[in-house]
Computed example of a mutant assay.
Amino acid sequence: MTGSWKQFETEAPELAKRVHARFTAEKSHVLATLRRDGSPRVNGSEVEFRDGELLLGSMLDAVKARDLRRDGRCAIHAFPGDPEGGGDAKVSGIAEEIPAGEDMHLFRLALTDASVTWVEDNTLKVETWWPGRRRVRFERPENGPAQRYEL
C-alpha cells in the first residue's frame, strides 16, 4: 500500500513535520535505487515538497533516473547533519515519473513508509508510519531489548 505526502501529514502530522524538517534542513540527500540486476545503487539527490507531494528531480538520462524508470522502488535518507538536530529521517516508496519538461526527469514518491530515529535519555527511539496503519515506536533503553508501542 502506498500513500501521498499529504496522507502522511494527515495521518501522522507530528512525525511528518519532523521528517519534513530533516529533509529541508539540508539540500542534498542519499537516494537508494535498484540497478538492472537488483543490486542497490546510492546517489545524491534533492527533494521538493509541492502540492501535498514529495518530488525527486534528476538530470536528463541520469543513471538514477534510468533506475527509477525501470523499477520505481527506492529509499531516501535525509542528510543527517547534526544528530542532535532532530534525528535521522528516512522515507521509502515507489517513484512515479511525471511530466517535467525536456531537460529533466521529475518523480513523485508514493510513500510506503517514513521514519525518524533519535536518541533521548540514552534510549534509541524509532517512530515509523505506514499508509493507513497506526504509527509504531520502538524504544531500546540502555542498548537493551527493543520495546514496541502502537501510537
Rank of each mutant, 00 (worst) to 15 (best):
M1R: 14
M1E: 10
T2H: 09
G3C: 03
Q7R: 12
E9D: 09
E9W: 00
T10E: 12
T10K: 11
A12Q: 04
P13R: 15
E14M: 02
L15G: 11
A16C: 05
K17D: 08
R18F: 00
R18K: 13
R18P: 04
V19C: 05
V19P: 05
V19Y: 03
H20M: 05
H20W: 08
R22I: 01
R22P: 03
T24I: 08
T24P: 09
A25H: 05
A25V: 02
E26R: 11
K27H: 05
S28N: 14
T33R: 11
L34A: 14
R35H: 07
D37G: 07
G38Q: 09
G38V: 04
V42E: 06
S45I: 09
S45D: 11
F49L: 09
R50G: 02
R50A: 06
D51G: 08
G52W: 02
E53S: 08
L54W: 04
L55S: 10
L55C: 05
S58I: 03
M59K: 15
M59V: 11
A62W: 05
V63E: 15
V63S: 14
K64H: 12
K64L: 01
R66F: 00
R69E: 09
R69F: 00
R69T: 04
R70V: 00
R70Q: 14
R70K: 11
D71Q: 07
G72L: 04
G72Q: 12
R73G: 02
R73D: 03
C74F: 01
A75Y: 00
A75I: 00
A75S: 13
A75Q: 04
A75M: 01
A75V: 02
I76Q: 03
H77Q: 12
F79T: 09
F79M: 11
G81A: 08
D82I: 02
D82A: 07
P83K: 08
D88W: 00
K90F: 00
S92G: 11
E96S: 05
I98D: 14
P99Q: 13
P99H: 08
P99N: 15
A100F: 02
G101C: 07
G101H: 11
G101N: 14
E102S: 10
D103E: 11
M104L: 10
M104K: 15
H105W: 03
H105L: 02
L106A: 10
L106K: 14
F107A: 08
A110N: 13
A110D: 15
L111N: 06
A114I: 04
A114E: 06
W118K: 08
W118R: 12
V119P: 03
V119D: 13
D121T: 10
N122D: 14
T123C: 05
L124V: 12
L124D: 14
K125D: 03
K125N: 08
V126S: 12
E127V: 02
W130Y: 07
W130D: 06
G132E: 06
G132K: 13
G132D: 11
R133G: 04
R133A: 07
R134D: 10
R134E: 10
R134K: 13
R137M: 06
F138Q: 13
R140P: 01
P141E: 15
P141G: 11
P141D: 14
E142A: 10
E142N: 14
E142Q: 15
A146F: 05
A146N: 13
A146P: 06
Q147P: 01
Q147H: 09
Q147G: 07
R148Q: 09
R148A: 03
Y149E: 13
Y149R: 13
E150R: 10
